[in-house]
């Protein structure tokens, strides 16, 4: 019995390294962790998008000027309105470029002049009245309502992602519980023997819990490692969302530890429940 052998046996008198090998359980937990990482990133990104759109849209509005309005005068009048931080005339050429895919190159349609307002705490009903007074015939188009709808959608996506995350955690817990049951079946005689020789419930459950925590943690680390490049790619592909698609690095880093904690807790629960039936 070499010293290394001695240490290994002392750490594993139940032979759990063989009863619960690296194999199916870490792979399943890894798959769960991959889904969890995607759901987590989705929830995080949805929250970022929702917040970004809400703040961007609530601070802007568009004013469509009537025919014959003097654009410079209208811009000056709108700039002076309370709650308006800045008023900027939209470039007609740029507008034409935006509309070309729908209207074609034919110049038959005259586009109305448009002024973009950047707001600073303005309330839309009061602002609409002020715009109508300052520039008669002008039409105020606040961006808030449609951006709010998109933000609501993003919020719903976030809720769904968090629900998926919860479901994934429940499935991972079930996988660990099945693993603990399989380990218990494989080492039933040994557990009974150790119990009869005076091993405490906590000692036996602790050995299973440490092994399953290791398997779950390593599996989850693998899942996160696979998910990370995909998430980085998605982050780069996210259109016009600078700053919104920030990956939740802290949570991704914590995921293996959370999985290990889950594995430990589930194994403890399964083993202690079984051991309590013994005299």
């Amino acid at each position: 019995m070499s010293r290394a052998d001695q240490g290994r046996r002392a750490r594993d008198p139940l032979g759990l390294a063989r009863a619960l090998p690296f194999g199916l359980l870490p792979a399943l937990v890894g798959a769960m962790a991959l889904l969890a990482a995607l759901a987590l990133a989705g929830a995080y990104a949805a929250a970022g998008f929702a917040e970004g759109w809400r703040s961007a849209a609530s601070d802007t509005a568009t004013v469509v000027l009537p025919r014959g309005a003097v654009v410079a005068d209208a811009r000056a009048a709108l700039s002076d309105l309370p709650g308006v931080a800045d008023a900027e005339v939209a470039d007609p050429a740029a507008l034409a470029r935006l509309l070309r895919p729908w209207l074609g190159d034919e110049g038959g349609i005259t586009l109305p002049p448009i002024i973009d307002l950047r707001l600073a705490g303005a309330r839309i009903p009061e602002l609409a009245a002020a715009v109508a007074t300052a520039v008669p015939g002008a039409l105020l188009e606040p961006h808030g309502p449609w951006a709010g709808q998109i933000a609501s959608l993003a919020q719903a996506v976030r809720v769904v992602a968090l629900s998926v995350l919860t479901l994934v955690a429940v499935v991972a817990a079930a996988v660990v519980a099945v693993g603990a049951g399989a380990g218990l079946t494989a080492r039933r005689d040994a557990v009974l023997l150790l119990h009869e020789w005076g091993a405490r419930d906590g000692e036996i459950a602790g050995r299973f819990a440490r092994r399953l925590a290791l398997l779950a943690g390593v599996g989850a680390a693998g899942g996160v490692a696979v998910a990370t490049p995909a998430l980085l790619l998605l982050g780069q592909l996210a259109p016009g969302a600078e700053g919104a698609m920030v990956l939740p690095w802290l949570w991704l880093g914590l995921l293996p530890f959370l999985a290990a904690g889950l594995g430990w807790a589930v194994a403890q629960a399964v083993l202690r429940r079984w051991l309590r039936r013994l005299p």
Binding site: M1, G7, A10, G15, R18, A190, L193, L194, W197, G198
Partner: peptide, 23 residues
């Protein structure tokens, strides 16, 4: 009721380990 995955020496050492004797 010897544990089949442990050597004879480890089986004999089991009660001592359970009692917390230093390795």
């Amino acid at each position: 009721r010897l544990l089949p995955y442990l050597s004879v020496a480890d089986n004999v050492a089991l009660p001592l380990r359970l009692a917390g004797r230093p390795e």
